[in-house]
Design a protein around this nucleic acid. Structure first.
Length: 395
DNA sequence: AAACTCCTCAACCGCGATCTG
DNA sequence: TCAGATCGCGGTTGAGGAGTT
């Protein structure tokens, strides 16, 4: 697989773009779409390589880019998603509408990373730097669990991406034509999805699953060996990806919703419509009972229109509900992860005590009291986890 | 006001994945 | 099946602005 020469052709300009170049690129894309990036510069009359044009468009010229300061909520989202996904900026960007991966990456590197660092949190692992000193208490275990969750989610995402690619190959007739490469290129959809990802990256799927009422219970006790059953469809072969098991006991049918969105690639509101329902719902009690160990996703072939909240509330799903953490861990964890900007989660470096001795009080600014502006995100999680220890099978 | 340092972020680079003939 | 072409991603760089001495 040889690499193609890109910018090493002589005569091609590098460096900052001029307004004239921007104008040419914009005008061309607006009129013709970007089509082949490789061919674009010549067509547009630009002395640039296609790669440079693509970068300029995706990171700067796209009309739907939001520029300027990141909001508190955006910061929170970045940190949370980074904890889950690591440096997968494109995946993170799909959950931050109108922000580019490059911008998020820059913001992380120049602001958030330093902030976490100042707080004594390792920005890579999102664990307290002095974690080693706390091996004896519950925090390290909790942190490890969260880390496992992140690893599990990461593996799941990768498997899911593969799955979706396979799905796309075999189910073109089921997918919205907006998702076709032709459409993507001809409309130069500014935030079109990466090929093969028919919806917004679903790295929050697990959060949704938790949020809808107890999927974590299904994960309960399994975090140490997360095995996602990324179920595909009735005829689909089992995924070969590590971590994908065969015991698909329940399907959360995640329809490739962005294909119908007018803003392909932009995260839809984390709405219930993302969840079309469940398949094999008869298995869900078993699932909730902790036997099943994952949430499974399909790729949009199924369209079981049972609203997820109803699904969870259905009689069958209430079976064995005694296993649901009475402390409402799920809700609070999700509140933390998806909390709105009302909470003042200050990251100012001076308040970052990680003692974690708050007695499980949810006083970090995200919870009911909402006043703890001297707490930090990680402490919030740890407090949450601590407070959930007693009643959750998770930890 | 000049020199220096720090910070930001647009842009580049290189690689892996995917597409295509 | 293979190899070249293309794309997208993540890491890194460096110009220029801001802040400090």
């Amino acid at each position: 697989m040889g690499r193609s020469p890109c910018c090493d052709k002589v005569g091609l300009k590098k460096g900052p773009w001029t307004p004239e170049e921007d104008q040419k690129l914009l005008a061309h894309i607006e009129e013709h779409g970007h089509g082949s990036w490789r061919a674009l510069p010549a067509k547009a009359g630009l002395q640039r390589c296609g790669k440079s044009c693509r970068l300029r468009w995706t990171n700067y010229l796209r009309p739907d880019i939001k520029r300027g300061k990141f909001s508190l909520q955006e910061e929170q989202t970045i940190i949370q998603l980074h904890a889950l996904l690591g440096n997968r900026w494109s995946a993170i960007a799909t959950h931050l509408p109108k922000r580019t991966d490059n911008e998020i990456k820059n913001y992380w590197n120049t602001h958030l990373k330093k902030r976490l660092d100042k707080m004594g949190i390792d920005p890579v692992t999102h664990k307290p730097k002095n974690d080693a000193l706390k091996l004896s208490d519950g925090q390290s275990k909790n942190a490890a669990n969260l880390s496992h969750m992140a690893q599990w989610e990461s593996a799941r995402l990768e498997a899911e991406a593969r799955l979706v690619r396979q799905s796309k190959l075999r189910s073109n007739t089921f997918t919205n034509p907006l998702n076709s490469p032709e459409f993507s290129s001809s409309t130069s959809s500014p935030m079109k999805n990466p090929v093969g990802l028919p919806g917004p990256a679903r790295c929050l799927d697990i959060l949704k699953a938790w949020n809808v009422g107890g999927a974590m219970v299904g994960l309960g006790g399994e975090l140490e060996s997360p095995t996602s059953t990324l179920s595909y469809s009735e005829n689909a072969p089992p995924m070969s990806t590590a971590g994908i098991g065969e015991n698909s006991t329940a399907f959360v049918d995640f329809v490739g919703n962005s294909s119908g969105s007018s803003e392909a690639g932009i995260m839809k509101e984390e709405g219930k419509e993302d969840w079309k329902g469940f398949e094999n719902s008869s298995n869900l009690p078993e699932y909730r009972d902790g036997i099943a160990n994952s949430v499974s996703f399909t790729s949009g072939i199924h369209d079981i229109s049972l609203p997820v909240e109803n699904a969870w509330e259905s009689e069958s799903l209430r079976v064995n509900s005694e296993h649901v953490p009475s402390g409402n861990f799920v809700q609070r964890f999700t509140d933390l992860l998806l909390s709105t900007a009302g909470a003042d989660r200050s990251f100012s470096g001076d308040g970052g005590s990680l003692s974690g001795d708050g007695g499980g009080e949810w006083d970090n600014g995200c919870g009911p009291s909402g006043s703890g502006n001297d707490k930090n995100y990680w402490n919030s999680i740890l407090n949450l986890v601590n407070s959930s220890n007693s009643d959750s099978p998770l930890f």
